[in-house]
Computed example of a mutant assay.
Amino acid sequence: MGGELAEVDGQKRAAAAAAAALVEDGMTVGLGTGSTAAYVIAALIRRVAEESLRIEAVPTSIRSAEQASAGGISLTDLGHQPRLDLTIDGADQVVPGSLDLIKGLGGALLREKIVAAASARLVIVVDGRKLSDRLTLPVPVEVVEFGWQATARKIAELGGQPVLRGGEAAPFRTDGGNLILDCTFGTIADPPGLDRMLKLLVGVVETGLFIDRAERVLAAEPGGVRTLLPSARTREDQGAR
């Protein structure tokens, strides 16, 4: 078991290095949150030290900000840099072809989506175990604390099974002070439709469904790092919007 985990760890580091190699001197870069994103940040720290790479970064969490700053990466924010060249982040589940994603296990989904929306390009780094024909994982939904029980009931009316992350005794709080409901919908047949319906509910701040946002996915697998691009059909659909 330990050997298998070490192998996956090595694969993720390789994919993170491939993603970090996309960063060019002078770029403003969004930094994601989570274990894979931490590998990306570590790879960028090495490039800053070894290649004198000059970048500014907008982190999506306090955790990522602390790691990047401690490693010598200059930080900025969207007030000073409203348009980013590239964001590199991880994901909890990815559908090859559409590149629809579920994110939010790390609790930073709102900030991650804000940064992704401000970026010219979004590159996702995952290990191959995160690839799936359909989205099936519970969807993290960030909600305001006031009346969260009512919001949860509305989500249940949409067919979800919401569970408060951390439980009522010690609920998990995002960096923005909100709560997260992890909502099981089974196999999600229409991710864009579900995303729209959830965001129409009063009390919902954002969802962990990232639709039509990723430019590419770098998947770490035993044979190497595989690059996944949106299907031709998906690109045509996006261009029509």
Rank of each mutant, 00 (worst) to 15 (best):
D85R: 09
L158S: 08
S132M: 09
S74V: 10
T87S: 07
E24C: 13
S35E: 09
I41T: 12
P162Y: 04
F185P: 04
P192W: 01
Q11F: 05
F185S: 05
V144S: 02
V40I: 14
G26P: 06
D9M: 13
V123F: 02
L109I: 03
K103I: 12
V40H: 06
I114L: 15
A120Q: 13
G72W: 08
G128W: 05
D85L: 13
R121M: 11
A219H: 10
V95M: 12
A70D: 04
G223E: 13
G223C: 12
V204K: 02
I114Q: 02
D77Q: 05
A156Y: 00
L122H: 09
D190K: 09
A14L: 09
D195H: 06
D127L: 03
E145I: 10
G224H: 09
V94H: 03
A240F: 04
R129I: 07
A70G: 04
D195S: 12
A156I: 09
A65D: 11
V126D: 06
V217M: 11
E221R: 10
L110A: 00
D212K: 01
I155L: 05
G203I: 05
E66T: 11
E157Q: 15
P191A: 14
V8I: 14
G186S: 08
T36H: 08
A189F: 14
I45P: 02
I188Q: 08
T151H: 07
S61A: 13
R121K: 10
E215D: 11
A19E: 09
V29N: 02
L78S: 02
V141D: 01
P171V: 06
